[in-house]
């Protein structure tokens, strides 16, 4: 559906370096990475707004590297929604239809349908300057899909919205992706959005594609320390395999010894990634690690409590606030942590 084949692109001092990725029809694809990593540049390159210095861009199997944006059939929604301030809502939504030559009753019927579909019929004659963030966003989405693109590019569309509006918008996006079969490529900083929506994803750091693939795999089993850090794995520990035991590797992390599932031989340096919600207080099962430590700090964040435990190295465990209170976890309290060996993801150097 969308293919970037060794695309390199220079914009001032920024370099997008040899990026190759494939987005399949119907994917809800996320491009994530820190600010300035080049996520939006990729999106705009797909839209035809930047021409690569090297490499090829293919849409629907056809090379479109030199094709202007108006010929590519992709919709684009920016974070700031970019509504035309001099046009009413109805004119914004109908803009694409008008410039593509659809006029009169057909265009009016299309726009009326979209106004109803997105629940913004009451805003038809309003101007963008008077709309709320959520309203602007629905108008922007309606305008983008009005010309019936089969690819929708979204540049951090949720970041400027309040939580309630975000939920409603996520519902709209899921509908467009699942019911209307729209291929969606979304740029975001938010791990929550990725977990909620992504089928596949790419991680971009400093203009380089670090990893691409199934969202579950990238989020839970990243191939590099940078990606692990970016996707929010709380415990990233460097260690060395000291021996192998029963198909497991025994890894020494600065005095803390953990068993993990990996083929790494003894003597190999590895990085262990453990999500905080895979570390729990209590006694482990047969395949688990039992680690004794002392609580250093407990931070409550809504219904979740993040407990930092000094086990020789500091581990972060996440549990419900209720569980943390029931266990009377507080700084200075000794605690035993259980970590399933299979829950430890091993990155081999």
């Amino acid at each position: 559906m969308i293919e970037l084949d060794h695309v390199s692109l220079t914009l001032g001092s920024f370099l997008l370096d040899d990026v190759s990725l494939t987005i399949n029809r119907g994917d809800y694809y996320f491009i994530v990475g820190p600010s300035g990593a080049g996520k939006t540049v990729i999106l705009e390159a797909i839209a035809g707004l930047h021409r690569p210095d090297q490499g090829r861009i293919l849409l629907r199997g056809e090379e479109v590297t030199s094709l202007p944006p108006e010929k590519r059939g992709v919709g684009l929604v920016y974070q700031d929604f970019s509504l035309f301030p001099h046009m009413s809502v109805i004119d914004n939504i109908g803009y694409g239809l008008r410039v593509q030559g659809m006029g009169g009753s057909d265009a009016r019927r299309e726009v009326a349908g979209l106004l109803d579909e997105f629940g913004i019929a009451h805003l038809a004659n309003r101007y963008p300057g008077t709309l709320s963030g959520g309203e602007k966003q629905r108008v922007a989405l309606a305008r983008a899909v009005a010309v019936k693109p089969d690819i929708l590019l979204l540049d951090e569309p949720l970041s400027a919205l309040d939580p309630v509006t975000q939920e409603r918008f996520i519902h709209d996006l899921q509908r467009l992706n699942r019911e209307d079969g729209l291929t969606i490529v979304q740029v975001t900083h938010s791990r929550r959005e990725v977990r909620l929506l992504a089928t596949r994803m790419a991680v971009i750091i400093d203009g380089c594609l670090m990893e691409e693939g199934d969202a579950g795999v990238v989020l839970n089993a990243p191939r590099s320390r940078e990606v692990a850090s970016f996707v929010g794995i709380e415990n990233i520990l460097d260690g060395v395999v000291v021996k192998r035991a029963g198909g497991h590797a025994v890894v020494d992390i600065g005095g803390l010894v953990l068993e993990a599932v990996t083929d790494a031989p003894a003597g190999e340096a590895v990085t262990l990634c453990i999500r905080s919600d895979d570390i729990a207080p209590g006694t482990p099962g047969d395949l688990g690690n039992s680690v004794a430590g002392v609580v250093v700090r407990v931070v409550e964040n809504g219904p979740i409590a993040e407990v930092r435990v000094d086990c020789g190295v500091e581990l972060i465990a996440a549990m419900t606030r209720r569980a943390a209170r029931d266990l009377c976890l507080a700084p200075g309290i000794p605690v035993t942590l259980s970590i399933e060996a299979a829950a430890i993801h091993v990155i081999r150097e």
């Binding site: 839209a47 707004l49 944006p69 305008r143």
Partner: peptide
């Protein structure tokens, strides 16, 4: 940019 993606030259 948005106008271009909507089909305007």
């Amino acid at each position: 940019n948005v106008a271009r993606t909507l089909g305007a030259g």
